[in-house]
Simulated assay, not measured.
Amino acid sequence: MPLLAEDVVPPGTLATMPQPALPADGLTLRPWRAEDRPAVVAAYADPAIQQWHCRTMNDDEAAAWLSAWPSRWRAESGAGWAVTDGEEVVGQVSLRTLDLPAGLAEVSYWVLPSRRGLRIAPRALAALTAWSFGSLGLHRIELRHSVSNPNSCRVATLAGYAPEGVQRGGCMHPDGWHDMHLHARLDTDP
């Protein structure tokens, strides 16, 4: 059955472009590399990242996670970047889900414990958002976080993601069901 609305971003758009490195207000977002594995293992050993991302990773799992990003890019199902300060990986930001025809994505991010408090996440998120609207052509990007995670709420606000409401029982975390704040940006937002 044909759709009456045109695709916002035609399928094949992402797969045909190389994944760019993006400047992010003193940081760089770059595609993940196999040699980033120690930083990923360290990140997922952090109790806060485990709590909010609901996972841990050993060395082999981190290697598989890193090697999956290029195929997700080609499949247009997601896109992930290492957030770097010089050559050091300090965090991650990703379009964890993508729906190109709808012009929609959901973002995720984390910052290594030693680098928290330096506004790394909002700078990385702002850079990814600008690229996603300006170069990729998305219309809407959503961000969800537990209502028990005020730091993530602060990141969303600093990056210009307006609060839209609460999803009751929206995500299972290690300690049970959490209500989730929903934030979003539109390509028409200032």
Rank of each mutant, 00 (worst) to 15 (best):
G80R: 14
V41A: 08
R30C: 03
R119K: 12
D99R: 07
E142W: 06
R115N: 11
W177I: 09
D59F: 04
E142D: 13
V155L: 03
L100M: 11
A184V: 09
S71H: 13
L104Q: 13
H173R: 07
V166D: 12
S132Q: 08
S152N: 04
G137L: 04
R144G: 12
W110Q: 02
M1F: 03
A102L: 13
A42P: 01
A48Y: 11
Q19N: 05
D187H: 14
L125K: 08
A45C: 04
A39I: 06
L143C: 05
R115V: 03
E76H: 02
R115Y: 14
G117Q: 05
D36Y: 01
S108I: 00
R123G: 07
R119F: 00
D60Q: 14
L136K: 00
T84C: 13
L112Y: 09
S132H: 06
D59P: 01
L118D: 14
E6Y: 10
Q19C: 13
V83K: 08
V40E: 03
W32C: 07
P70G: 03
A68F: 08
D59S: 07
S146N: 08
A126D: 12
G103F: 09
A75Q: 14
Y161P: 09
A156L: 05
G134M: 11
Y109R: 07
S77W: 04
G80H: 09
A156Q: 09
M1R: 13
P23R: 12
T56P: 00
A156T: 09
A130L: 06
D189Q: 11
W65Y: 15
R74I: 06
S152W: 06
P10Y: 02
W131K: 01
G26I: 06
M57D: 00
I120P: 00
R72T: 02
P20N: 08
D179S: 08
L158G: 06
R119P: 11
P38G: 01
V147K: 00
H183V: 00
A15E: 01
C171A: 15
L100Q: 03
C153L: 10
T28C: 12
V155Y: 10
W110N: 09
W73D: 08
P70N: 04
P18G: 12
E106I: 06
P47T: 10
N58F: 08
A42T: 02
R37N: 01
E88P: 04
I141G: 03
L143N: 08
A130M: 01
D189K: 04
P38K: 07
A63G: 13
L118R: 15
C171H: 15
Q167D: 15
D7Q: 12
A184F: 05
G137N: 07
P122Y: 10
A124Q: 10
A5W: 14
F133T: 04
E164S: 11
W32L: 10
L136T: 07
L112D: 00
E164Y: 05
S146R: 04
D179K: 02
P174C: 06
I141D: 06
W32D: 03
T28V: 15
E106D: 14
A156S: 09
S108N: 12
R144A: 15
P163F: 11
E35L: 01
T13H: 00
W52S: 02
G176A: 05
L158E: 14
P101A: 02
W69K: 01
A68Q: 07
D25P: 02
N58S: 05
H178F: 08
H183K: 10
L4S: 15
V155C: 13
A21M: 09
S148H: 14
P101R: 11
Q167Y: 13
L104A: 12
G176W: 10
